[in-house]
Amino acid sequence: MLIQLVNLSKVYDIGAVRVEALRGINLSIERNEYVAIMGPSGSGKSTLMNVLGCLDTPTSGEYLLNNNRVSEMDDDQLAEIRNREIGFVFQTFNLLPRANALHNVELPLIYNGTPTQQRRQLAKEALEKVGLEDRMHHKPNELSGGQRQRVAIARALVNKPSIILADEPTGNLDSKTGDEIMEIFEALHEQGNTIILVTHEEYIAEHSDRIIRLRDGSIERDESMSR
């Protein structure tokens, strides 16, 4: 099993208010699954993704990644997981504004000590995969929204992670550009990647083969689709 969540909860305790963003989530995801997470705003989708991406820690419950307890890992091990196992694609792209596309994609390779030559080569290949080979030296503010998201996807791919997490990757894009992005995910899935993405759009969720619906921090429905 690639991912296993056991009775996982996340509580935000901000003074007077206690927000239970996730309540007792039990969930298993296999390698090479294509999962869409849906649900109304505030239902805990992003919170769940952040926990899956080892960016955030659950309040209780257990997260097993490749059968290893994430709660037992130290900071450096978590950094290593984020670097090698997980490719995160954000709704707001989260690119470094002063770095060009190539350097943005190289970044994960810098943090695992890939030598310069090889790093440049891998980053170029990743940018080619998302069809941006002619925009390598553009800064994010010289790129369209769709192009920025493709840079972000290339960055998520470059370390060949086992899981790609995408939190509303098309949320800031028009539907045509969104479709182009979804084609990239589709291709990645076909190449054997595990993909988990959050979306509000049914037509986007239909690309997946499993839809998990959240409501108030709990799984309301978890349906696999025959494709």
Binding site: D75, D76, A79, N94, N159
Partner: peptide, 16 residues
């Protein structure tokens, strides 16, 4: 801060 967040999200360690 955001830049630091991005770097950490893609695998920068504390020492980096």
């Amino acid at each position: 801060t955001r830049e630091i967040g991005i770097r950490k999200a893609i695998g920068a360690r504390k020492t980096d």
